[in-house]
Design a protein around this nucleic acid. Structure first.
Length: 208
DNA sequence: CTACGGATGTCCT
DNA sequence: GGACATCCGTAGG
């Protein structure tokens, strides 16, 4: 079994989310391979999760893809920007991981053309990273992160020194469901959204 | 630096 | 007509 298959064979979506940190998110454009290492993710845990797009089986934002096979690319739009998610479980278990930030590693020039911003502001948010990669429509929605133009790369995977568990963004932290924390970040990485400046590790960005 | 409000496109009720 | 898993510019400490 390869790394992709064994990762998505795990039954705990929180665990899958954590193990995606350091994996490369790669996009083959017409010119280049662009992408970066995943540094921030959130887990969404199915029909009993009040924050989930599948909460109580409600149909919205084409969430039927969440019920498909693990590894499926699931996109939706927020204020016109594409949000990238990966389905993490099998049929009838609509769980997924939301990719919130990456550290650029490939195709830096093209990233800068797509999103002309300076420094860490390039890809430190879910809408920002899809802009930088050049993903603006639903063309790859429903395909697989295993073998489509948008895929995960395990060859150059980095290992975080430390993973922080935080509350999901936009969540009500007083709710029982949120107590465990379902947002995971590479501690000290400068591309983590809303990281405080004094927390940033400028030496090695939080990688081993 | 943090805080806040307006812009913005889809999708739902 | 409202909600929203966001972004950005501006105001103020």
């Amino acid at each position: 079994m390869d790394e992709f298959a064994s990762l998505f064979a795990l039954e705990d979506t929180d665990e899958i989310a954590k193990k995606l940190l350091g994996v490369e998110l790669l996009y083959q454009t017409q010119r280049n391979l662009v992408g970066g290492h995943i540094v921030e993710v959130e887990a969404y845990l199915g029909e009993q999760d009040p924050g989930s797009r599948a909460y109580r089986g409600q149909k919205k934002h084409n969430n039927n893809l969440l019920y498909g096979p693990s590894g499926t690319i699931y996109m939706f739009k927020m204020y016109g920007m594409i949000m990238l998610n990966v389905v993490t479980q099998t049929t009838d278990k609509p769980e997924g991981v939301f990719i919130r930030a990456i550290e650029p590693s490939r195709g830096i020039e093209e990233l800068s053309l797509n999103r002309p911003k300076i420094g860490f502001d390039q890809t430190n948010g879910p809408g920002k990273l899809s802009q930088a990669l050049g993903i603006r429509d639903y063309e790859l929605n429903g395909q697989s992160f295993n073998d489509s133009l948008l895929r995960f790369g395990f060859e150059e995977k980095l290992e975080p020194k430390e993973v922080l568990t935080l509350a999901r963004k936009g969540s009500d932290e007083t709710q029982p469901w949120e107590q465990r924390g379902h947002r995971f970040v590479v501690a000290g990485n400068p591309y983590v959204s809303t990281i405080a400046k004094e927390e940033i590790d400028l030496i090695d960005h939080g990688w081993n």
